[in-house]
Design a protein around this nucleic acid. Structure first.
Lengths: 210, 210
DNA sequence: TACGATACGGAGAGCATCCTCCGCACTATT
DNA sequence: AATAGTGCGGAGGATGCTCTCCGTATCGTA
């Protein structure tokens, strides 16, 4: 029951995680464990000692994603204007999701295994806050919601499907979306009423996709 | 070597395809064949007689998708204005991709197996045509390309990941995008230069995603 | 209704992946 | 440098998926 694991153990743990990110991006989160072991240069036994189940590995990928969220938050939330927060939110998160194509599947899986878990709950009110601020500034269209923004991030993130080669072009779609988000006297009103975060979370986690 | 297959054979063929669409949407295109057989209410032998390989089944799903394209084309291309074509293109195709979450994987798979194959080639010039028309009308932003529109459709389609429950909200994102596509004196210029269809096709089909 | 032709079902062999177990290697401590 | 203790590797049994084979059922035709 040592506090610090042995150095080789630590190194292997990292390598497995790193290779998992690559392999899962290429082949999905159901990619064979044996191949993961080979790529990470460890034996199957070692892999299973570090991650007894696939879900344990997925959970750790998930956690490091949440950590990434926290690392991006200060810049986004601390922007000088509400609109700038909106821009940064969509851009930074979208870019990051796009660079981790395995993320949506990981999120879904964690939610399936542990439906109580509510990722990013701590940010929901912060998001609503800068959304309101941007609307008061008159720069964000008044009919858009924090949930809408999250969905747009997801959409932008889906461009990760095209691989890193698309990154140079990715900002074109980002720009279209940001222009569509600006408040304008003649914007088409958004149809219907947005879900709230609660509803959105519930819906997003009833297993459906590839 | 009959021209028309027996009626029960025909019926089974349809049922397998129909169940495949559902199963693949739920679990991805690698879902177990045995389960597909069970769901379709046929024996494994029957399944394999109709579709000797997984790729044969995927190919047929693909073909019926292309057929759907052709069914949607007249309305889109025959719209009274270029802008209306743009709207219909993004809306109709986006909605349809969203309702078939297995489609992106199917497309990729076909392209892998048969890289020469170039889906939708016959529409590329038609797309460029209504894009140009809409720009001349002054309604579509001049810096956007036909490829950009295709990518936006993909993004909208990715909302299929949330399942049919999201459909009522789906048009909100569509509206944001369409507003972002309108020509405006103050729109942010799209960064860089768009790929052409050729480049886009090549890039999109180097296997990368889940 | 009877008959030939076509298609069906599902048992089971073959194959890929999962996961455990245990003898050996490495690390850190004295 | 010696030793206790932690961690490693990979062979191989267990499991689950793929795909074939052939006796039986269904279809279309006369």
């Amino acid at each position: 029951m040592s506090a610090t694991p042995r150095r080789d153990a630590q190194r292997n743990h990292e390598r497995i995680l790193a290779e998992a990110r690559i392999l899962f991006a290429e082949r999905g989160i159901e990619a064979p464990f044996d191949e993961l072991a080979t790529r990470a240069g460890v034996g199957a036994g070692t892999l299973y000692r570090h991650f007894p189940t696939r879900d344990a590995l997925i959970r750790e990928l998930y956690d490091s994603s949440i950590e990434m969220f926290h690392r991006l938050a200060p810049e986004i939330l601390g922007a000088p204007t509400g609109w700038r927060s909106v821009e940064l939110f969509v851009e930074r998160l979208g870019e990051w999701v796009a660079s981790s194509p395995y993320l949506p599947a990981v999120m879904r899986r964690v939610a399936e295994v542990d439906p109580e878990h509510r990722p990013g709950l701590e940010f929901e009110s912060a998001i609503e806050e800068f959304v309101e601020r941007a609307k008061r500034e008159g720069s964000l269209r008044p009919d858009v919601s924090g949930v809408d923004l999250n969905v747009l991030v997801n959409m932008l993130g889906s461009l990760g499907q095209f691989g890193g080669d698309y990154l140079p072009y990715w900002r074109r779609q980002l720009t279209v979306i940001l222009d569509g988000l600006r408040a304008r006297p003649d914007s088409t009103p958004l149809p219907g009423v947005s879900q709230d975060f609660e509803d959105f979370h519930r819906m997003a986690h009833e297993r459906t996709a590839p």
